[in-house]
């Protein structure tokens, strides 16, 4: 495993591999947060239209991405 100091230097350097891996990790985190906040918004009665507007995307795309997961029962699938 890489030390944190080496990693911090690598992310700031021109070497692409670590920087790109960090971007991928950031994207995963963003997707994770989006899923949790969308579920919360739906639980609070928000419409897909309102959620899409807040996320700055089209209603169809947010619905396609999250609807099945949000609609699932508390037992999971």
């Amino acid at each position: 495993m890489t030390s944190m100091r080496e990693l911090a230097v690598a992310v700031d350097s021109l070497e692409p591999a670590t920087g790109l891996a960090a971007v991928a990790a950031l994207r995963k985190l963003t997707d994770e947060l989006e899923a949790l906040h969308v579920r919360n918004a739906r639980a609070l009665g928000w419409s897909w239209e309102a959620i899409a507007s807040s996320l700055g995307v089209r209603r169809q795309s947010v619905h396609k991405k999250h609807a099945r997961r949000v609609a699932r029962t508390p037992q999971g699938g």
Partner: peptide
Amino acid sequence: APRDRELLAAL
């Protein structure tokens, strides 16, 4: 490869 947690911490 470093873990996501470490990559994010580096950012």
